[in-house]
């Protein structure tokens, strides 16, 4: 059981610029994969393409969720099939309370005609919020509106905890977090680690990986995975930067 990305090519729909150029990656259940890479390597594009954002077009390749191709699915179907995307920049939805938003997402997973039980829902919501040290006032506040950067990221993790996806893709979840918030968010993610769930952690900095320790680290350069290693690779990248990988690619190309 895995989320399998095969030879994925994707471009920006409006300009035609190709961003992902034959990306291969398999995230097994129970594993945490990290993707690191320099700016512009396609990290955020990958998360948006996996989520089905209309700004991008897939021109080649497959994404199989436990064997089922998700590329033909609408964004909401992908979510219900078990893919979760934690946004780098979570959107504000004015006038819609956080509690009603998460409730609508859970309601969408129930069979037609079945209503979410309110008491159980709030009990679970409060339990997860306590885990993330989120004040109860965030249930009534509009989704992400006026939240600080750290509060928005906690709110992403809260949604993940509530929706219990099969595969979670965390896009730069560490950006904008101070060290305390980083620990809290990481605890939330670690609490979700299980043999039934796979993670793809996209990050620019090694710091996050001290708290969410990955099983595998990949380096994304120019829209392709160019290097794969264990968790120590993250430290190596932190120390040496990305240039040595770029040099390797150049050397391989000229050889």
């Amino acid at each position: 059981m895995s989320l399998e990305i095969k030879n994925l090519h994707a471009r920006v729909a409006s300009t035609g610029a190709e961003i992902l150029r034959g990306l291969n990656l398999t995230i097994e259940k129970g594993k945490v994969h990290a993707i690191m890479g320099p700016n512009g390597s396609g990290k955020s594009t990958l998360s948006k393409v996996l989520g089905g954002h209309p700004d991008y077009e897939v021109t080649e390749g497959e994404v199989l969720l436990d064997g089922v191709n998700v590329l033909g699915m609408a964004p909401d179907e992908r979510s219900r099939a078990g893919v979760f995307l934690a946004f780098q920049y979570p959107m504000e939805i004015p006038g819609v309370s956080n509690a009603n938003f998460i409730r609508a997402a859970l309601q969408a997973r129930l069979p037609e005609g079945e209503e979410l039980e309110a008491t159980d829902y709030y009990a679970r919501l409060y339990e997860k919020m306590d885990m993330l040290e989120m004040d109860r006032k965030f249930t009534a506040r509009s989704v992400n509106e006026g939240f600080s950067g750290g509060e928005k990221k906690r709110n992403e993790i809260l949604q993940m905890l509530m929706l219990e996806p099969k595969y979670a893709i965390l896009d730069e979840t560490d950006s904008g977090l101070d060290i305390d918030a980083l620990k809290i968010v990481s605890n939330g993610v670690n609490a979700m680690r299980s043999p039934e769930r796979g993670f793809l952690v996209i990050t620019h900095y090694q710091r996050l990986l001290d708290y969410i320790v990955p099983d595998v680290v990949h380096v994304l350069v120019g829209g392709r995975i160019e290097h794969t290693g264990g968790k120590e690779l993250a430290l190596e990248l932190e120390a040496k930067g990305y240039d040595w990988i770029k040099d390797d690619i150049a050397a391989a190309a000229s050889a």
Binding site: G51, G52, H53, P54, A74, P75, D76, R78, S79, R80, L85, F87, P90, M91, I93, P94, G95, V96, N100, F101, I102, A104, A105, A108, R109, S142, V143, Q159, L163
Partner: peptide, 20 residues
């Protein structure tokens, strides 16, 4: 897109944005 990415179907997502 944010609402869709949480599994909320298009019509409900639009209604939710309008309602908000």
């Amino acid at each position: 897109f944010y609402l869709l990415s949480r599994g909320i179907p298009l019509r409900s997502a639009q209604r939710l944005v309008v309602f908000g």
